[in-house]
Each structure stands twice: as C-alpha cells, then as structure tokens.
Amino acid sequence: MSDQTNRKPENGAFFARDREWHAPALTPGYKTSVLRSPQRALLSLDGTISEITGPVFGHSMIGEQDNDLIHNFAKPGESAIGERIIVHGRVLDERGRAVPAVLVEFWQANAGGRYRHKKESYLAAIDPNFGGCGRAITDEFGQYSFRTVRPGAYPWPNGVNDWRPAHIHFSIFGHGFAQRLITQMYFEGDPMIWKCPIVGTIPDKRAIEQLIAPLDWGNTIPMDARAYKFDIVLRGRRSTMFENRLEGN
C-alpha cells in the first residue's frame, strides 16, 4: 500500500451482507444452482481478524497491456475484432468511500460471443487476436479502466433457447477477505438482460439495475472507442472507534 494515501488502514468489521439483495443460493431457473446450493443455513459470525484482513497486490504486478484486451493477446501490429469500448468506473464501499489499491480482474467472450476456453463449443469463431482476460489495480480514488471489444451474446444449455446478454465478468478484491466479490456487468439497453435466468437469480429489480453499465458519452473518445461506466460497491466497514478489543492493539 506504499503508493496509497496517508490515511490510516481500516480494520473495522464489515457491514453484514444483505442476503435479500443478493441472489439466494437456490434459484431453479438457473438449473446448475439446484445441486450446487447449500441446504443448511449459513453460520453467521461477526467478522474476526481472519475476515477483516485480505491480500494486497502491488501495482508492479500489472503489465503494461494487462488492461488492454484489444491488444494483450494480439499478434504484433494486429488487434481484436469488434466494437471498441472503454470500460471504467470506481470501486467504492457502502459508505461511499473510494477503495484504492485493489485488484480488479475481468474476463469475457469475443465480439461473436465465443469464449477462448477448451470446454466451450459454440460454433461462433475464435478471434485469433483476442484472449479475453484483463486486470487493473484501482488508483488512490478507487478508479480503474480497461479497453476491450464489446462481447457478443451467446447461447447456453439451460432452457432450450436461453441466451446470455452481452456481459463482462468482474472479480474484485477489497481490503478484507469478506469483501471478495465476483459479478457480471451488462450493457445499457440490452433487451436480453430481462430474459436471462442468471440475471433473474437476483430478486430485486433495483439490484439488477446496479449491474447495468450506462453508455458514458462524455468519456467516449472520438474516432476511437465508446465508453461505459461501471461503478462497483463493496461492503462498507464499521469505523473502529468502539472496537478496540482485538488482542494486541
């Protein structure tokens, strides 16, 4: 965290997760969840030091092209095919505070909806210049950004005619292991969003809206790439003013 601000590291426990806001484990419309969802109640525990701490990754780990999916797998002088976009945003916590110096990883299908993965058998073509992975570390204001091509929708074997909306998967670290989050970003105006059983695992429409990135016209680069803004909110943490009983403090 050497390249961060001089603010004190936080060590309060996290706000309890609102599990009515998140999808429940068992969502039969998304068939794979039926056998992969626990049936017993979760054991609830206010965060201990094992949960309020978490790994930190240095900026030095990040390669120059790690946040440029148009080029980071492409042959020299070539680039991925598709609609060029920039995706950017801030990582905040529930208190609205920036979450600096955290790792954000993202992965996606190519412009035709095809993933570069051996278990994927969709007949849309692989793009020889597109790998589909990227990563960034948030700056002191919690900001991240990357360049990519807009992914295509793709069919999947759930219902007989289920298609995923265009989406980008996100994996986000916070400052504590209990903030660990994986989610998916969708695109403003995509009619597929409201037909998707995976989107539909989330019960509250307002929560779904939180996953839809608006077109960010202001940040669109003329003659180059359009922009989408996707802010991510991690769990807030309590201030530590009345929490001084962690042994050793």
Binding site: H22, G96, H117, I182, T183, I198, T201, Q210, R235
Partner: peptide, 15 residues
C-alpha cells in the same frame, strides 16, 4: 450505498 450484487463466476472463470 448498496453492495453490488454477486453473480456466478460461470464455467469459464479460468479465463
């Protein structure tokens, strides 16, 4: 703010 809701990592999480 509300926490960003989780979604499955999916079968191609390895990418």
């Amino acid at each position: 703010l509300k926490e960003t809701p989780s979604q499955t990592a999916g079968p191609y999480v390895h990418i």
